[in-house]
Structures are given as C-alpha cells and as structure tokens.
Amino acid sequence: MIQPPASLSSSDRPSAAKLLLRIDQVKKTFNNDVTALSDVSLDIHAGEFVSLLGPSGCGKSTLLALIGGLGSPTEGTIDWQQSMYDAEGHPERAIGFVFQEPTLLPWRTVFENVYLPLKLAGVSRAAARDQVMDGLRQVGLSAFADAYPRQLSGGMKMRTSIARALIRKPQILLMDEPFAALDEITRTKLSLELLEVFAKTKLTVVFVTHSVYESVFLSNRIVVMTARPGRILADYPIDAPYPRDDEYRTSVQYNEYCRKVSGALKEALRSADTIDA
C-alpha cells in the first residue's frame, strides 16, 4: 500500500470526532474466487463525508454493501460502535442506503415509497404522516406525494430515494454512485442539496463514486482504492469549509485537491494494470 504523506493521514484528524465504525482487515472473496477486497482497514468518524473513489472493479460498492450489512466479509470485521445496535443486533436506525438506481416500488406512490422504511418498522401511516411530508418537503417533492414513480423525472426519483433513506433519521448514509445516471445539471443541483442536508442533520456519509470532481466537491475525506484486488491506496482529508458552493468549485484550493486526487487515481489505475499484466 502506498502511504499518503504523513501530514495528510487520517489519523491526524481531531481526536474529538467520535468513532462510528471500524473496518478492520476486511477481505471479501466471491464464490468464483474473485477477490473483491483485500486487507481493507478504515475508521469512519461521526460527521465525516467520506468518498470511496476508485476505478470500476475496485470493490468500492462491495465495501459499501458490507458496511450496509448486505453480506458479510470473508475475513476481518466491521464493528459498529456498541451503542448503535438494537436488540436484534442491527445497527439501530443507523443506516440509510441510497442505491445506484432509485429502486422505488412502482406500485406505490411517492408518499408510500418514502413511508416504506417506517412501515417496515411498524409505524402506522397516520403516525408517520407528518414525518413523511417533512421528508418530502426537504427534497422539494411535497407536491408530488400522490404521484407514482413512473410520473417522475430521473432527478425526482433520486430525490425520493434520498428522502426514503433519510426518513428514519439514520446516523450514517451510505450512497452508491447515486448521481451516476443523472445529467450534469441535475447532478450539480442534487449535490448542493445533499450538502445542505449533510450540514443540517449532522449526518455521516459514505459516498461511492468514480468522479474526482464530485468527491472533492462533496466530501471532507477521500479514500482512493485500487482495483483487483480492492485495496486502499490513499486517504486524503479535504479541509475546505462547508457550506460549499460554486465559488468553491472554481477556487484554487478545489483545483489543487482535484489535481492531487487525480494523481492518486492514476496511481490506482497503474497498479491495477501491473497486476493485470
């Protein structure tokens, strides 16, 4: 593993940040002997916006799925802070997951789709009503509560999906390339809205992406991964203050970060190439 410069290492961040999740030497092998992840260790603290960045096939989505509990590591452990477990051993209300596709249920209205996680948790519709409407307002969709997913644009579908992931007030939001299928304008708009939510709710976000620019704009920490097998190559803090806007996007600091992260990504691609050869 190539170590980032010591001054940029994540261990330097203020120790005040509460440890939320410890990923320790995780390895994931699939049935067909493909090693998706090898020796991945990562600490995630409360309030971080971590981007997992890497070429396709580097296992970043696999890592996110493991964090979300959609499968278990072949070796190593993923430890949540003890206090976050509920009686059944689930990280209680801790996780919101936004998938690459909006994955809305087509037979349910926007309201019902956002209400679904609460419904599955046994909250009655009447009791959830205000909360769901608030959630819809937050993403600007209160006028579309009774619409069906097919009537929505791609961006609105993704907004609904985000509202659904946030409805149980999770401590951590896992996002798997949520904006990849959207057009540039919608993506920029949703990025800004996501940062607004991030600032307002003191969320922790783990965001999988293959876009350097998106990760530098959104996150305060970028973890660069290499492909085959997926390993962590570098771990950069992005010390630009929030709120961030278009001014940040054109700043020297932003460009400097982009250049640095791009360099690391190139390194990741190169190391993947040597393994392939």
């Binding site: 799925a65 689930h90 997951f97 998938f99 690459q100 679904l116 599955l120 948790a121």
Partner: peptide, 24 residues
C-alpha cells in the same frame, strides 16, 4: 435486486417481504 436490498437494509421480516414486495 435493488428492491431486495432495500428490504434487507430495512430489516424487513419474511412476512413483510412477501406482502409488500413479492406479491406485488
């Protein structure tokens, strides 16, 4: 697959998955 994962993430019971996902 995405719907299945959605129900997994939300710890849906087998019965809930059947009623709200599989049957529709």
């Amino acid at each position: 697959r995405g719907h299945r994962n959605l129900f997994l993430i939300n710890h849906a019971s087998r019965w809930q998955s059947l009623c709200y996902l599989q049957i529709p």
